[in-house]
Simulated assay, not measured.
Amino acid sequence: MDNQAEVRDFLRTRRDRITPEQAGIVGGGGRRRLPGLRREEVAMLAGMSSDYYAKMERGNLAGVSPEVLDALARALRLDDAESEHLHDLARAANPSPSRRRSRPAPSAIRPSLQRFLDAITGAPAWVVNQRADIIALNSLGRALLAPLLEDPDARNNQARFIFLSPAARTFYPQWDAAADAAAASLRTAAGRNPRDTHLTDLIGELVTRSDAFSNRWSAHDVRLHNSGTKHIRHRDVGDLEFVYEAMQLPDHPGWTLFAYTSAAGSPTEERIRLLGSLASTPTEAPAPAPDTQRTGLRRAE
């Protein structure tokens, strides 16, 4: 990914959304050719020269200190996710040979982590990587995400499911909110890992195949998904409303564990119990008797 273009577009879109009145600039709300703040106004608010800020908005963050980035974040009224993203873009523009290279996440889940997931019996839980690939699930998570896991377009990826599968608009009643969150999560991941070719390939695929994703991607919105609410319409048990918690897994860089819970006594709690009982009901035919296993003959129906 082109770091300079990422920096330029991110700063420009953040500047364009702030009015002079919001920034506290007296008399700055007259006739303007474009919405938002002017470059010199951002520079004044951040306590830097107009030339220095103009260089930054052209995409050059080389040598910019964390203190200057923090001042710029305050001037542009960036939230925590946006401020972190700005620092990520600056780190990508200032690679340090002495900086310790981060450990790659393992390709397979540890048995102990899978046992931990399986021990969560009252709530759907699963692990995703930074590309939104589903890595592992517990039984309820598998039952809840069955439409995604069975969808050939999704290929076990939440972002592909949301943007490429027609079923996603039924599964997520608040589809626009789910799509906003998915695109912002990928934008955040791309800022942290600009050299992840699998991630950039996924983004390129979605930009090419989905106008809904392309429009969201060009907005340069980022988001941290630590907790929140999610609405799902499940084909077997109907409408569900969850509160989710997201936990980073330090031994698995880039992996996040999500757990979806519901309020005690709520319709969702009852429906999740029903979903769990449906998931635990055997659907496979019984195993052949020992004598047919030896002979290879089919059992009589």
Rank of each mutant, 00 (worst) to 15 (best):
A5F: 02
A5W: 08
L11P: 04
T13D: 09
G29A: 11
R33H: 07
L34I: 12
R39C: 09
E40Q: 13
E41N: 12
A46W: 04
G59W: 10
G59R: 10
N60A: 08
A71Q: 15
R74T: 13
R74A: 15
L76A: 08
R77P: 03
D79T: 02
E82K: 11
L86A: 00
A90S: 13
R91M: 08
R100P: 02
P106Y: 03
S112T: 13
L113P: 04
D118S: 13
A123T: 05
P124K: 09
A125G: 06
A125M: 02
A132L: 12
N138H: 10
S139P: 00
L140W: 04
L140V: 10
L144A: 00
L149T: 06
D151E: 12
D153S: 14
R155V: 12
Q158V: 11
F163H: 02
P166I: 13
A168S: 15
Q174S: 10
D176M: 03
A177G: 10
A182W: 01
A183W: 04
A184P: 03
T188E: 08
A190Y: 01
T197F: 11
H198P: 07
H198C: 10
L199S: 03
D201Y: 02
D201A: 11
R209K: 15
A212I: 02
V243D: 14
A246D: 02
G254R: 03
W255R: 13
Y260N: 08
S262E: 01
S266E: 02
E269M: 10
A279W: 01
T281Q: 09
T283W: 00
P286V: 02
P286D: 06
D291Y: 10
D291A: 15
Q293D: 12
L297C: 00
A300S: 09
